[in-house]
Structure formats: C-alpha cells, structure tokens
Computed example of a mutant assay.
Amino acid sequence: MDLQELLDNILKGAKYLGTFSLTEMLGFAASRHLSALAVSKEGSRQYYLAFLNGEPEGAIYLDAEGALFGDKAVVYIREGRQYVLCDVKPEIIDALAMGCRIFEKGHLRKNITYAVPEIGKKSEGIGVITLSVLREKEPLNGVRVSIRKDGKIVGSDVTTGKGEVSFRVMYGNYTCTVQDRSQVVRHFSIIFDESHTTHVLDL
C-alpha cells in the first residue's frame, strides 16, 4: 500500500469534525485534546497535519513530484486555505507521526498571521481581552469564538465551563464570530483598549 492509499484509508473510516482555517483548527484541536488528521487539497497538492492529544505532531506534503515529511512539509501548511479535520484513533496518529514528526513547531506558528504590534508604535497597546458568552445569563461551554481584525482571524478558541475565551491582541476594533452547538453563527463588534478588556456576548 502506498502513502496516498494509507492516508485515504485512514480518512475513509474517520469521523468528520468540521472544516476550518488553520488558526481555527489549531485552537479547536488544542481545546479538545484531539487525536485527528487534517487534509487540504489544491489540485495535485495535498497538505496533511496529524494531531495527537491536541498538538500538531506530524505533517505531510504531497504533490506530483513526491512527498515531504515533518519539518520540511510543515512549511507548506499555512493560513489561507481550508482544512478538513477528522477524528482518528490515537494509536493510528502515533504510528503515522513516527514517520513525519514535526520537531520545529515554530515553523507552524510562523505560517499564521496574528495581529502583532509594530516596532516604534507606542500609541498602540497590546493586552489580553476576555469574552464571556452567555445565553439567558447562563455561561455557554464549548462554543467556538473567533476574533477578526481587518477581515483576518487573529484568534480562535472554544469557551471554558465559565463561558469564557481570552486572546492576546493589539488594541483596536474587532469582529467576534460565535458559533453555538446548533451551528447558529452570530457576529459582534467590539472595542479593545485599556478600559474595555472584558466583553459579554449575549446570545
């Protein structure tokens, strides 16, 4: 069995978890400690990311010329495309990752565009914003929250038992997208500065 057949067989029997951007997927996998395999396909190019206990542990890049593994493959896995994520048994991911282990996880972080402060701009601050998601004054656990600036996702996470998520971002105006368990999506506009470090998102 060749590599393509192996990957196809793994995904064929796996439970579909959703389609995500890279940033959203990393947050989703980490918050649920998932063992999963993600794939994105563009023509003859295929990008795979293997998660074990929520951490990206393996990467594979395939194209018409062959395959790259691990650190050489992960540089191709970046924001700007959609990834299909499937739940896979930990022992399968562990065996797969042995042949495509990511050692330099910093490569993956470099491929995600976050809002970062520019050197010399002292007028713009950076800090941690906390969002509380409520419905009828009750906190909602396990709700996915994404935060965007100028159309780009700068953070994505799932609410805790207290209905909260926190992101480290620059001061400014943001759009928050909240997707509840019934897949209903709501959008909120918020301001983040020294006097607005917490917001309540009431569904």
Rank of each mutant, 00 (worst) to 15 (best):
Q183L: 12
I119R: 10
G163C: 08
H187T: 15
K105T: 09
G80N: 04
L140A: 04
V169P: 00
T160V: 05
L203S: 12
H196K: 10
I77N: 00
G18L: 10
K162G: 08
V39F: 12
V39I: 14
V75N: 08
E164C: 07
A36G: 04
E138V: 05
K15A: 13
I126G: 10
L22E: 04
E5A: 11
V74S: 03
D180M: 03
V158M: 03
Q82W: 11
V158E: 07
K162I: 02
L26Q: 06
L6Q: 15
R109P: 00
F20S: 11
A30G: 09
L201Q: 08
G172T: 15
I60T: 00
C100P: 00
V200I: 13
G70R: 11
D71V: 07
Y48L: 01
G66E: 14
F51P: 00
N9M: 13
L96I: 03
P139V: 13
L37V: 15
G106A: 01
I147T: 06
T19Q: 14
Q4V: 15
G43P: 00
D180H: 10
E104P: 02
L3V: 04
G43S: 04
Y171E: 15
E164I: 11
D8P: 07
I10W: 00
R148C: 03
Y76L: 00
V133R: 11
V145E: 02
E55K: 12
S44G: 13
Y114K: 09
E124L: 08
E91L: 07
P90C: 04
S132E: 14
R186S: 08
F51V: 01
E57M: 14
G13L: 13
A30P: 12
S156I: 00
